[in-house]
């Protein structure tokens, strides 16, 4: 079989040329896609960040690093960086712990397991905007479930306006992100757990290994490639998720919950300061790319 493989792929010179031509032809949609919708926008954003571009009618004036220097001077820049980092860190951490925990739970045998498994992923399939309104409604001071519940168990005396305070607003955001995002990881981890060999687990059981030992020495090493990929994906998705913040807090109160996507959108499309927004976008990109490359390198992720 090996000879055939070589014959059909690389030995014959003529065959090879046809392969190269076919490969290039087959790939052309992707190459066009990358050039038009990835590289072009990327360099355009970079260029815009050095201009004072604010209207399609006026020429774009080159301003050097002004947009960046201004950003570093603004307090809002720090808020945006901190919020995005804090939100991403907590959400990814909880997504991972909850995802794995629930996956282990759903891997046990119990009645109604297949129904629960199917239901668990619903939040992921639900549009983000809808999830946003839902959580905003749940944390509504007078009409929401959370205050009603806390009042009924007498944990609080009066209604709490969750979204009017920066710290509680951030907590509401983290909760909504986890609710929306963790189901995806639950399902992936659950599927990954099913590839752990039963024999190995049985052998460990006979050797007297407890739950934590099995988790640490058999399960985690086995699914660690999946964990790497999912943690990486979760970071990128959380970092760039726009809808929930936009709908739940709108970046408020007083810009205290602004994250990169919402602030870039606002600067560009509400205030029409495209140059400034592009500088923020470049910074967003650098932060994420640095993290991505470091993570891939340190955790030796195979992509």
């Amino acid at each position: 079989m090996k000879e055939i493989t070589e014959a059909s792929y690389s030995v014959s010179r003529k065959k090879l040329d046809i392969d190269v031509i076919a490969a290039v032809l087959f790939l052309s949609p992707i190459i066009i896609f990358l050039l038009a919708l990835f590289f072009y926008p990327l360099f355009q954003t970079l260029w815009l960040s050095f201009t004072s571009f604010s209207s399609f009618r006026e020429p774009q004036a080159f301003v050097g690093f002004e947009n960046y220097l201004n950003a570093f001077r603004e307090p809002i820049f720090q808020t945006v960086v901190t919020n995005t980092a804090v939100l991403t860190f907590f959400v990814v951490f909880v997504d991972f712990v909850l995802g794995l925990g629930v996956a282990l739970l759903l891997n046990q045998k119990f009645k109604g397991r297949s129904i629960v498994r199917a239901l668990v992923i619903l939040p992921w399939a639900m549009p983000g905007v809808v999830a946003g309104y839902l959580w905003r409604f749940i944390f509504n001071p007078e009409l929401g479930l959370v205050n009603a519940f806390l009042m009924s168990v007498r944990a609080i005396d009066g209604y709490i306006a969750w979204l009017d305070h920066p710290s509680t607003a951030l907590i509401v955001l983290i909760i909504s992100y986890v609710w929306k995002g963790s189901p995806f990881f639950i399902i992936i981890y659950l599927a990954a757990l099913q590839t752990v060999s039963e024999e190995q687990l049985d052998a460990a059981l006979i050797d007297g290994a407890g739950f934590w030992q099995k988790l640490r020495y058999i399960i985690l090493p086995h699914i660690s490639p999946i964990i790497n990929v999912t943690v990486l994906l979760a970071t990128f998705w959380t970092f760039n998720y726009f809808e929930l913040v936009w709908v739940i807090t709108g970046g408020g109160p007083y810009d205290s919950t602004q994250i990169f996507p919402t602030y870039i959108y606002q600067s560009a499309f509400l205030w029409r300061t495209f140059g400034r927004a592009s500088a923020y976008a470049v910074f967003d990109f650098i932060m994420l790319a640095t993290f991505g490359l470091l993570f891939v390198w340190l955790r030796k992720v195979k992509l």
């Binding site: 926008p41 954003t45 990128f236 959108y265 592009s278």
Partner: peptide
């Protein structure tokens, strides 16, 4: 297919998905 640049193009594609939409939206 096996050809040069295959991995590079594939990685670029995967990484392009990880870049912020917010960074792409103004040029688009």
């Amino acid at each position: 297919f096996r050809f040069r640049l295959r991995r590079h193009i594939f990685y670029t594609l995967i990484f392009s998905q990880m870049f912020p939409l917010a960074a792409l939206i103004i040029p688009i």
